[in-house]
Design a protein around this nucleic acid. Structure first.
Lengths: 117, 117
DNA sequence: GCTTTAGTTAGCCGAACGGCTATCTAAATC
DNA sequence: GATTTAGATAGCCGTTCGGCTAACTAAAGC
């Protein structure tokens, strides 16, 4: 069976965002691009460990990077966050649509009640 | 070092949302509460496996449940999704604030250029 | 050109994840 | 009261995750 590519994208984006180190990187990149070394400094962690986080963010499409000499410069790719927003908005529409139908039902019951009384 | 409780909440919420089965449960619960058995049916999976997903959703605060006889009825707790929205909004503010400062800088450079020429 | 620096690659380790079966409890039903 | 049903609990298993060290490459800097 084929899995929708959207599902995989949401999987990897949500998984990437579930780690505080990676969310901190995103917050930092929101203020402008930065080298891997610079990004790594606040995090008490060996560089190879930190690189795995950067790779996870890139694979999820949240971050992109280019090579500038021996320096890898990372930039935020905010469109990936928009994918999450879209999913949440869809859920809210489901939830709110349900509430609308519930209140319509309540009104109908109320007016039925009037008819009966 | 103490970790902010907020970070842990975001950790578990994002982790819970990174699985397609669990996102499907959330979408289903958006249309109204349901028993575990009902929720499990569309997912080709043994019940104990499915129960772990429900537990993950509950621990993240996305779902709540009550016991009705031998039936466990689950409801969506959408406030937890709002926590995610808030985080994304904060990131957007960072990103957009940066863009504002960039364009202000660009304007300043442009007018400096005029003065020089 | 030697040294430092930034990053990469490989591989190890323990914990957590996501599935399973087997078994048990307790409510509902006949 | 015997049987079915909904869920809970325990424990197994392979994979992924998040950390590490060691060793390598290649660009910069002196």
């Amino acid at each position: 069976m084929l899995v929708s590519p959207m599902a995989n994208q949401l999987d990897s984006i949500f998984a990437a965002l579930s780690d505080p180190t990676r969310r901190a990187v995103i917050a930092r990149l929101g203020q402008g691009e930065a080298a891997v070394k610079t990004l790594a400094e606040p995090h008490d962690m060996a560089l190879p460990s930190f690189l795995k986080h950067i790779d996870t963010l890139e694979r999820a499409g949240l971050v992109r990077s280019r090579k500038d000499g021996r320096v890898r410069v990372c930039t935020l790719h905010p469109e990936a966050l928009a994918v999450v927003e879209t999913w949440i908005d869809q859920q809210k529409r489901l939830w709110e649509g349900r509430l609308d139908r519930l209140s319509a039902l309540a009104e109908q019951i109320a007016s039925d009640g009037k008819d009966i009384q």
